[in-house]
Amino acid sequence: MVKYATMPVIETRNLTYTYPEAAKASIVDVSIRIEKGEFVLITGPSGCGKTTLCRCFNGLIPHFYHGTLEGEITVAGLNVKEHPTYEMAKYVGLVFQNPENQLFALSVEKDVAFGLENLGVPRDEIRSRVDWAMKITGIYELRERAPYELSGGQQQRVAIASVLAMKPDVIVLDEPTSFLDPLGAKKIFEVIHRLNRELGITIVLVEHRLDLTVKYADHIIIMQDGKVILEGDPHKILDSEDMRLIGVGIPKVTRLYQLLKADGVKFHGKVPLSPEEMAEKVRRILKTHD
């Protein structure tokens, strides 16, 4: 797929941030560029600074957390340091890990409307955007239910709808499925994949479990100790024998591919990121031998 890399939607230069009263910086010298329409996966071991980086994207850092932010960060053409979170919220939607703690209202549709109400959008437009967002995320039928009556997966889709209704350029999701069961998680990934492909919304997904997500990604960023250690096309990154990948937990089929390659098996084309891609490679080898 051709990407029209003209204007980055997120760009950071030497971004370094230290929480108030923290002994050392949580992110160090991070310089990344995320193009419009990309599906970006950010991963790395616990405590590597992934969540901190997400908080910079909509200005929670530095406006909510304070602390010291050095370097430059531009999101949707705005300098984050100069624009408060409520302004950034129009361009960047953040979805958090715990579905329970990001829904406030007593009905689903009221929650989805929350951001638009804050922005003072006229009632008719709120109604049409809320309905639209609920339909895309598949929660329209649940619109009158209370959040605590829903499953974790449904709650998380409400959270996605509530940022989607604001029609942002970017949706950032910080480990959105860690409390969900596999089926609930799969549905979330399918929804965000659709938002990316059909609506062209830039997706930034923070996730440990590459096996479930890497197949969707155009761009992967691997962090460790607050630094970006590897970055680029996932097919290239996961093809490398880089020892630093071991700690990340690459998908099992990708690992299998690497083992077989080390055994001397000659594969063609790019590294497989999903069972389907790996199966295709195995089939090709067996066919060429026939």
């Binding site: 089926l183 089929v253 069972p275």
Partner: peptide, 12 residues
């Protein structure tokens, strides 16, 4: 959802 390795062998 079966493990990835199993998914591969179901494909195959």
């Amino acid at each position: 959802v079966p493990p990835q390795i199993t998914q591969l062998f179901i494909e195959l």
